[in-house]
Design a protein around this nucleic acid. Structure first.
Lengths: 249, 249
DNA sequence: CAGAGTTTGCGAACATCGTTCTCGAACTAG
DNA sequence: CTAGTTCGAGAACGATGTTCGCAAACTCTG
């Protein structure tokens, strides 16, 4: 029935008619389409015709359109440039797989100091790359939030982040949670940056302006009239992560 | 051409044939459908047939399906129970609309103290209600992230939150940003809670288990083997908000 | 070389979807 | 009553994701 996720499904077979295309080719075509015309343009028919075939052919490589989106997300995740995290006095190398990790460190993980391996700096660097990636592939902000990303490149990235956080005393679940939240927030910020002055943005701000003029929302009016801008990207990332992984509030 | 957002479009006309249905009825039918069978079940045809008519009739009340989703989101936003925020030594009532708001307070907004109006407590209360709302209407976690919510009930909620934050020295843009991020994070957490043991969750964790057994992801394996659970909802909300609106890091 | 077994290619078709067209019906204003 | 306007809704259009079925291409076995 269900032969599991696409990641543990063999792409080629030793016998039978050899495939004329590959997952990578289809994925690349879909990414090109999405980069140029948005995620809605990634139609089975359009991807197929971009490769010179009919829609049905794609289903030999992918079981569903959602799987194609998974492939796309993981393919662009290969663009990360991950430098090994700064080694760390204790808890540096991979912990022995069987034993409980991080038994003792308590006073570890102060704010954003320079000691304890500088996990914050490593996370901020990854966050910047994520934002840049979403700038190159705006459809990511639409495709990612509804989909758990567990492809090989995504897992390599996750492993890198966890390595960066290796010296941190928080629980594994907390770290995974913090990373998921961080990615969600970056998606929010990136999408907000991209929709600047879109066709729908203008009439929306105009409507908001009208609402505030009618009264009844004084605090909203004051917030919109405030000349001071929002916090910068690095600030937001830093505050999110120190909030989530900093000392108990 | 474009007659603006649905919120400033008259629902009824003084002349012409009177409408047999109302936006509220259609919205209610759509919400019932979404609560029972998910957002994908909210089809123009199914909503229409739930009201005993054809699909074309809905377009007298709504210009597009997305507008119907906007109506749905704002309709359930009416379920919030907003108690007026605790008054506050200074910066209590609505600021005079023309003047710059919050000129002087500097040392305000410490961590989660009891003074300065307890903005954190108010925000946590709203966050709890949002989570409960998403529990009652799981489709919200899918419908909200890709859609700016500016209906009347959503704006009332936003006004309430900004009133709660009235005494806080941060800029209006920062407060709006923090609220948007908070909602996004709540959506993430709620969706994670809902997808517990879905049809797709089992095979995904199984796949992850296999990956960790293969080696190559020692930190991920350690994180998954960590018996300690993630932070609770109130903790996450508190940490997010104190991180975003607390003193500079 | 011949057949069996297996996989791929893909035209055709199906079920749905959102949306538009169109025109008769129902109502108000003058 | 007439003119003007809005509503109802059947029919249809175009597009979508996906499935079916069969011919073609290949490996393996003998």
């Amino acid at each position: 029935m269900t032969d599991g996720p696409i990641w543990k499904r063999p792409e080629t077979f030793a016998i039978g008619r050899p495939a004329e295309r590959s997952r990578a080719q289809i994925t690349a075509a879909a990414i090109t389409l999405a980069d140029a015309e948005g995620l809605d343009a990634v139609t089975m028919r359009r991807v197929a015709s971009a490769m010179g075939t009919g829609p049905a052919s794609l289903y030999r490589y992918v079981k569903t359109r959602d799987e194609l989106l998974d492939l796309m997300i993981d393919a662009v995740a290969a663009e990360y440039r991950l430098t090994p995290p700064t080694p760390n006095p204790r808890a540096d190398g991979p912990p022995e797989e069987g034993s409980r990790a991080g038994e003792s460190p308590e006073a570890e993980a102060a704010l954003g100091g320079s000691a304890e391996g500088d996990w914050l700096g490593g996370v901020v660097e990854v966050a910047r790359q994520t934002r840049d990636l979403m700038g190159r592939h705006p459809w990511l902000t639409v495709a990612m939030p509804l989909r758990p990303t567990v492809g090989p490149h995504s897992l390599a990235l996750l492993e890198h982040v966890l390595a960066t956080l290796a010296g941190h005393p928080a629980s594994g679940a907390t770290k995974l949670q913090a990373y998921a939240i961080l990615n969600g927030v970056i998606g929010l910020i990136a999408r907000a940056e991209h929709t600047g002055l879109g066709d729908r943005q203008a009439e929306l701000t105009g409507y908001l302006r009208q609402v505030t003029r009618e009264g009844g929302h004084p605090h909203l009016a004051a917030a919109l009239a405030d000349g001071r801008g929002p916090d910068g990207f690095d600030d937001v990332v830093t505050r999110i992560m120190t909030g989530l992984l900093g000392p108990a509030a």
